[in-house]
Design a protein around this nucleic acid. Structure first.
Length: 294
DNA sequence: CCGATTCCCTGTTAGC
DNA sequence: TGCTAACAGGGAATCG
């Protein structure tokens, strides 16, 4: 499931391949990827409109904030690409056999090069859309990403502001970490890993957690995502690969995620699993003591 | 206003 | 063995 390190790995590949390229055509194989989560019913008319909107545009580069990625079109609009949990961006020659779950294809031309940029998404939680770029937290971002907070790897990230935002949340810290309006880029895997590395229980209430402990969680999240990015991200379930179809290697460095029932690498105890904010949460009950509030 | 829950999807896996 | 139910989860809408 693509989180910041995976989306950034994809963005880098997409940027290398597409910066300066002309979109000479496009095809929407499955119109559902044009809808938002709530409005999946998108008809062929919308698909045709999407194709008309992107065709003939020049890609200036690929940008990212948190898990939101977009291609700038002529420097004025953004072609938003959200990978959801199984989305992939793949570069292929037009003659290459299409992947079973290809949902959209962009025909690109750059100099003498001609190739396809394909959006592949098994579970259709991802989506594509073209939107005007609007200012948010010191940058221009697609309009639908205006509410997304800066991520820990961008210049606009403000540690003190993020700490203050976390300290206002009366929800479990695991839920707060997943709230993309507080801090972006952190998903279920890295939230669990950050909490384990900081020794914080996922059910600890953010607002009742000491400031230096919250800071430790942020520090851990930043570090673990940076480490993951350095090895191409986490390919836990084979649904994530980069633009060239390559997996990342961080799965072997995961300490708690997906390790329920196994031994804790730190204390030898048993990794437990419970549901927080509707997501599976893996943690060590010994290394991450349950909170005790009066 | 805020936190919790539901829904959108498909492929894999556990269980009867 | 074969079928069904449960599970995985990012993000937005809806609920309480």
């Amino acid at each position: 499931m693509p989180e910041l390190p995976e989306v950034e790995s994809v963005r880098r590949g997409v940027d290398e391949w597409t910066a300066g390229a002309l979109i000479t055509g496009a095809e929407v194989v499955d119109p559902r990827i044009l809808g938002t989560t709530s409005a999946r019913r998108v008809d062929d008319t919308a698909a045709a409109a999407f194709v008309r909107t992107v065709t003939g545009r020049r890609i200036t580069g690929a940008q990212r904030r948190g898990k939101f990625m977009w291609l700038t079109l002529d420097g004025e609009d953004g072609l938003l690409v959200h990978l959801g949990m199984s989305g992939q961006m793949r570069v292929h020659l037009a003659a290459d056999e299409a992947h079973r779950h290809t949902r959209a294809v962009f025909r690109l031309e750059r100099g003498e090069e001609r190739f396809d940029l394909r959006f592949v998404d098994q579970r259709i939680f991802g989506h594509l859309s073209v939107q005007p770029l609007v200012p948010a937290h010191g940058r221009l971002v697609p309009a639908s990403a205006i509410h997304i907070a800066p991520d820990p790897l961008e210049d606009a990230f403000d540690i003190n502001a993020t700490l203050a935002a976390l300290a206002r949340k009366r929800s479990p810290i695991k839920a707060a970490l997943l709230d993309q309006t507080l801090i972006s880029g952190v998903g279920n895997i890295y939230a669990d890993e950050a909490l384990f590395r900081a020794g914080i229980h996922p059910l600890a209430i953010a607002a009742r957690t000491r400031r230096n402990r919250l800071a430790a969680v942020l520090e851990s999240a930043t570090t673990v995502m940076g480490d993951a990015l350095a090895v191409g991200g986490t390919s836990f379930d084979d649904l994530y690969v980069n633009v060239n179809g390559e997996s990342g290697y961080f799965d072997r460095s995961l300490l708690v995620y997906g390790r329920g029932g196994q031994e804790c690498v730190r204390c030898g105890g048993e990794i437990a699993k419970l549901t927080v904010a509707g997501r599976g949460s893996h943690f060590c009950p010994n290394c991450q003591k349950p909170p005790r509030y009066r």
